[in-house]
Structures are given as C-alpha cells and as structure tokens.
C-alpha cells in the first residue's frame, strides 16, 4: 500500500477536515502521519506528503524542511499553503510589528513577520488550491482518476444562467437574503468572480446563492499573468452585465474577501515569488 502523510502548518485544519470527508483513500493509501487523527512522532518515509497551512513560525519552517526530505512528492494543499491565504491581510506594517513583538515576549515558536507560502522554502511538485479543496479534489490529487475533470472556471460548473434583461445599478452588498434561484449572481448585483476562478469545486458556493470569492485561485487563463490582466478582464465582465459604476467594482475587487484569490497572483506574492505553472496546478 502506498503511504501518505499530512503535515499541518499554520492554518485552520479545514483542509484536514475536508480530507476526512473522503473515504476512498482508506483501502488504497496508508495514512502514516497526520497529527489530527494519528499519534506519531514525525513524518516517516512516504510516497506523498500533503502540506496544509502556511509558514507562520520558525517551528513551521523546521517541520516543513525536515518532512519534505522524507517524501517522494510534495503537494501544497489549500490556499494557506499556496499563498498564505486570508492571513495575507496582516501583511501591513503595524500588524507585522505586532507579530515581531509577540515573539520577543514569550518562550514559544518565533513568529515570522508574515505567513509565507511553502514554495518559498521547499520544492513543491503539485498544487491543490481551494479553501479548502473539496474531498473530490483531494481524491483527484492522490489517485489521478482518469474520469476526473475540473471545469475551466467555476461558471462552467455553476447551474445559474446569465440574464441579459437584468442589469443592476449598484452592488447589492456582499450578503443578503432573497437570492433568486437559477439566475446568475452578477445579474443580481453580487460580486461573483466565478468567471475567472479555477473550476473543480462544483460551484460549491454559487449554487446555494453565495458569490464565489475565488478560493480556487485564478483559472488557467490568468494564473501565469499579473493581477492587472485579471482586473481589466473582470471589470469588462461587470461593465457588460451590469450598470454598476466602475470605481465601486474596483474597490470591491480589492477588498478583504478577495484575499484568497488575489494573493495567488505573481505580483501579490511578495519578493522572489515561486508561482506554479498551469501544469502543476490541479
């Protein structure tokens, strides 16, 4: 039986919980390390190492470097491991200073100034974006099932239809009730970026009525480009489908809820970005 391990760095454990929702691996792979479900002292030799969470502390870094040596293949799973995820919102001077001060006061793992993607430190063979990736995506990265096919974008997987007659004049706020079924959320004034988000999640959020915030990251059309190309394109989508003033769209596209998406772009990734190529991303 092939062996795999899950190394959890600083994240929310949502990626692990998602993996536990799948059971197809139980007969095919032996799980040898995953602190959430097994007591083991360290990562042994494994075929696949899944790493979730970002590098937040010196201990994260130490565990990461030590563990990848034992693995044939390293997969970065989840937005945190790939880009740092929502914690990137702390990428500001006053927050960074707060973190640095914390470490000085305590006898604990030292906090780095910000939460770093794992590819900044180790070689990553495969990327599985999502916050978290769905159980199906986890199975796809473990088994490469031939019948697995992710849509080019979330839109492709979404069961809502665009409606040319509905042209909202304002963004209707991020969240509100009374979402109309079957009709594209953009036509209802929501900031949905499913058009440019990598498919594969099955339009998990948009189908029940919540705009896509792009946790699967930019689709192949954008992933190797800088964010400007995407801003231009998505603004075009909104100017075609709505009458919402551009400045309103622009500021919403740069707001906190977009962190999971935006930080997956090269130019948001900080110095010496290590941005995956299309081929490496599932």
């Amino acid at each position: 039986m092939e062996k795999f391990a899950v190394l959890q760095l600083s994240g929310c454990a949502g990626c692990e919980v998602s993996l536990l929702n799948a059971d197809a691996w139980v007969d095919k792979y032996q799980l040898v390390y995953m602190p959430l479900v097994i007591s083991a002292s360290g990562v042994p030799e494994v075929d696949i190492l899944l790493v979730s969470g970002g590098v937040r502390t010196d201990e994260d870094l130490h565990n990461l470097k030590r563990s990848v040596k034992k693995a044939n293949k390293v997969v970065a799973v989840g937005t945190c491991a790939i880009s740092g995820g929502v914690t990137n919102l702390g990428n500001r001077e006053e927050v960074r200073n707060f973190f640095m001060n914390q470490s000085e006061q305590r006898d604990l793992p030292r906090l780095l100034a910000d939460c770093r993607p794992i590819a900044d430190f180790v070689k990553v063979e495969r990327y599985l974006p999502g916050c978290p990736p769905t159980p199906e995506l986890f199975m796809a990265v473990l088994f490469d099932p031939p019948d697995f096919k992710a849509g080019n974008s979330v839109c492709v997987e979404c069961n809502r239809k665009k409606d040319k007659t509905m042209k909202p004049k304002r963004l209707s706020g991020h969240l509100h009730g009374n979402v109309q079924p079957g009709i594209c959320l953009i036509n209802q004034g929501f900031l949905c970026i499913g058009t440019s988000t990598r498919g594969g999640c099955g339009a998990l959020c948009t189908n029940p009525g919540q705009p896509c915030v792009g946790c699967r990251g930019p689709s192949n059309a954008f992933i190797e480009k800088e964010s400007d190309a995407w801003f231009a394109s998505i603004k075009k989508v909104f100017s075609k489908m709505t009458e919402i003033p551009e400045p309103e769209i622009d500021s919403a596209l740069r707001s906190a809820q977009m962190a999971m998406f935006l930080y997956q772009f090269i130019d948001y990734a900080g110095d010496n970005p290590n941005v995956p190529s299309k081929k490496e991303i599932l």
Binding site: S10, T57, L89, V95, F98, C115, H174, S255, A256
Partner: peptide, 18 residues
C-alpha cells in the same frame, strides 16, 4: 498553544459586512 495567526489584528480596518 504554539501557533498564532492574528485574526483580531489583521481584520482591523476591513469591511465589517465581509
């Protein structure tokens, strides 16, 4: 507890409705 991500700090000045 050996980790800290800092939500109470990095969420300051972000839109409340999000």
């Amino acid at each position: 507890a050996m980790e800290l991500r800092g939500f109470a700090h990095f969420l300051k000045d972000q839109p409340a409705d999000q």
